[in-house]
Amino acid sequence: MKRSLPFLGFRFLALLSSMLVPCVVLTLMGYLLWRGLPVMGKELLFGRTPPLDAVFGRAPVWDGLWPACVGTFWLVVLTMALALFPGVGCGVYLAEFATPRQKRVLGSAVDMLAGMPSIVMGLFGFMLILLMRRTVLPDANTCLLLAAACLALLVLPVLAASAREAMEAVPASLRLAAAASGFSRSQALFYLLLPAVARGILGGAVLAVGRAAEDTAVILFTGVVANAGLPSGLFGKFEALSFDIYYISSQYQDQAELLRGFGAAALLLMVSCLLLATARGLERSFRRRWRGKA
């Protein structure tokens, strides 16, 4: 076959992109790590406060990332606590019990939610507070719980999609064998299928943790501040790693603060990659299990 000019161009572009993309990404990441890794250490987290005092909240940390880390941690924990049940339940229901019509309607609803920009979720939280101020709670304010609720809405489609996929990956023969042993559909689901797909669902949950930890736009609307210290409670303001990065990039006062920003960016990058690797590992071991059986 004669090779046409457009094809040669395409082949050149394909080769080029295979070089260009890794270069760009590795440059960006390498730059961050190059600037950020040297400042890693307990200085970065705790500044000049003694670490033990900071960990137990006995002394405030002004020049370290510790409050932001704690804030992000609680944010993620609360988000998962709020989102796991509806998200996973929704996915399992879609895979197991939904009629074709429900599948179409609920499925497109979940897809649509997945496509929503995160800032819309943030705006939703902001509106909720405005509504509450106008109606029942005049002094309602944005807070940790609200941010977690909005983030829960953000990660819900991630959980639902992964639960649904995991359920649909279970071979039909297992369901048949369960039915032949006299299990009803919901018994088979709760006693056999859910334990079997737990790893797949867990993989999705880890991905969702990553989404919740990285998102900035949602918390921007729902109560994140730059100098809150440790979160005071469910209804208090909080700091978060992702917001600190943004804040430092636009408002840094001195070189030390800038370096802290690089440290925070490198830290968040590593946490995200670690979460992704965990999720992939779980997913792969889940897939291997069913492929090995087939």
């Binding site: 297992l174 064998a177 032949a180 042993s181 006299g182 299990f183 079997a196």
Partner: peptide, 21 residues
């Protein structure tokens, strides 16, 4: 009832269908 029927009529499949437990 269906569940009782399935219990009283046991079945074994072509490929061994052990539960993943």
């Amino acid at each position: 009832p269906l569940a009782e029927l399935r219990r009283r009529v046991g079945m074994v499949f072509q490929t061994p269908q052990v539960f993943p437990v």
